[in-house]
Design a protein around this nucleic acid. Structure first.
Lengths: 338, 338
DNA sequence: TTGAAAGCGCTAACAA
DNA sequence: TTGTTAGCGCTTTCAA
């Protein structure tokens, strides 16, 4: 049923090598012969078998993108960026996502196992021991998004989380005059949360503002849990020159809505700021002051780096650092509007 | 460098067929031999070459998901559903997206060309002539999400758009007592928009409410353009027993925010309802009355159908219809709360 | 400029 | 239960 290179050769009255040449190195073939072959290809609707091809060439022209989760705009922007870049470079993009890090690990094991990808871009929200071990001698070329794997040589695209979080904290403390900043993060082990919390602590210390562990909460990046937490605590939090720094916009939005439901005015009674600058930040009332993370670009750069490495597996590892940007809106009680 | 089945055979002192059997039909091999082979496999870190395998089996165990766009939660839920189902069925999922229908078409041509996918789930936001022609004799098994391609035999998973839109319209007219309902849709050619508009017209006619083409707007499903449109028209729209039916939540949210900015109270001066029940609907103030579309399930069902067809290409085409659900919140001025 | 032929690594039919 | 062997469809020397 499927038409093979041999059928084309027969139809065009040439050998299969000639057909192959027309396909891959057209200039080595006489123009008239080439035309004949091309006509045969068209007439027979011939399509090279990708497996046979891969078997010879040992490459699939496919690269993967492994994400910890697919929820929300944050990831879809990464995907869009990666997708665009991959198509531009002539690669197909295979996207997979996992529920948690165990799942991510088994996914990566599967990829290594089947090794049908020329390379893979990996985003790990937390690097577990097993994951680290796996990646240290991973058989497939890879780049890491927004993270680093100790002991493994790899390219990476990171967001300078600290820079963004410090910019936010300094804005809150210096410009808005906040005297107490609660922190609502994701899981304790999440790398982004860790970086953001570090900035929180550092800036408070620098400013000589007392702060204790009781002002720190760890949730799961979700609107609902943040809403619930805020409902329980909103009256304790509220007060002049007080603010909540949530580690993403979703949670910030949940807190804002819980405040509204409890009659606490944002930002007058309490400031609430987020992180990521997703659409949620703009739609929340009041719109959230947040930190814009170049997600689309992160996806695109990751694929660019990855394809470069696939082309030259021995090239020196590159680390690209992308800079977040403070976006000031209406939820932090300062006079600036951006 | 790469270790092949032959290396394993040598190491385990068996023939390559025995190794192959251990890999594929373990029970045909003597237990002791099997252990020896398995140990060799482990020691050598052997992984079967997927191309050689595909060359024999003519299948890749990969299925594709082609989406018109990757923007927003709507698509990410489909992806999540598809991803979960694919992994459950032992398939890898390849996701691609295109900017417009020309782009979708070239993507599909590429898939057919390279034919490395066992099957593909396709979501077309508008079926152009070229697309239809392409799909009528598409070489790769496929199922269509939320649409239908005339002349082509295919499985499909559709959302009963009409049912959802009619439920919404009847609610607006019968329960909320709306006397005039503006319609803000996506592109004129978009299949969802067409179905929703049809319901709009039908219910108004049934209720004996006059309605003209001037009450119908076609935008692009985006927050910003809806915001702009609403800013220009909000005072004309506002009035007792009037309502805007936007074809998605994003646009509804833009209209609500524009109204707030213009001092028009929602829902008192104007009702605004959306479609899809994305997170935006809940976060908008007031929260949007909308229609929940089972996106996750649509993705999962599509992959289920697809894999069934891959397993048995001759099986009878199935059409699954998924039912949307009216979600009543605070933006439509009725006494019901859900 | 073209063709013949040797694999790439695997599965499966057939033989032992 | 195991081994031998013939391809799967392609690219790529090497020879003509």
């Amino acid at each position: 049923m499927p038409v093979s290179i041999e059928d084309v050769a027969r139809k065009a009255n040439v050998s299969i090598s000639t057909v192959s040449r027309v396909l891959n190195r057209r200039n080595l073939v006489n123009a008239r012969t080439r035309q004949r072959v091309e006509r045969a290809i068209k007439q027979l609707h011939y399509r090279p078998n990708i497996f046979a091809r891969g078997l010879m060439l040992q490459k699939s022209e496919m690269v993967g993108l492994v994400l910890p989760d697919l929820h929300g705009e944050f990831y879809s922007e990464i995907i869009r960026g990666a997708n665009q870049e991959a198509r531009e470079l002539g690669y197909n993009l295979v996207i997979s996502s996992a529920k948690d890090s165990d799942d991510t690990q088994s996914l990566l094991e599967g990829i290594q196992q089947r090794s049908f990808l020329d390379g893979v871009a990996i985003m790990v929200s937390e690097v577990t021991g097993g994951m680290q071990e796996l990646l240290v001698d991973f058989a497939v070329p890879f780049v890491v998004l927004d993270g680093k794997v100790d002991g493994a040589m790899h390219d990476s695209v990171v967001i300078d989380q600290g820079e963004g979080a410090r910019a936010m904290m300094r804005h809150l403390v210096n410009t808005c005059g906040m005297q107490r900043v609660f922190f609502v993060g994701g899981l304790r082990t999440n790398v982004d949360t860790i970086a953001r919390l570090e900035a929180h602590q550092q800036v408070l210390s620098e400013a000589g503002i007392e702060h204790g562990p009781l002002d720190i909460y760890h949730l799961d990046y979700e609107y609902d849990t943040a809403y619930a937490l805020a409902t329980d605590n909103i009256h304790d939090w509220a007060g002049p020159n007080r603010c909540v720094f949530a580690a993403n916009d979703e949670m910030a939005s949940g807190i804002v809505d819980a405040a509204a439901a409890a009659g606490v005015a944002i930002p007058d009674d309490l400031g609430v700021v987020g992180f990521d600058d997703t659409r949620v930040a703009r739609i929340t009332r009041p719109p959230l002051t947040t930190v814009r993370v170049p997600m689309f670009r992160m996806g695109a750069e990751a694929i660019r780096l990855l394809c470069a490495r696939v082309a030259d597996p021995m090239c020196h590892p590159t680390a690209i650092s992308l800079h977040p940007q403070l976006v000031i809106r209406k939820s932090c009680k300062c006079e600036l509007d951006a």
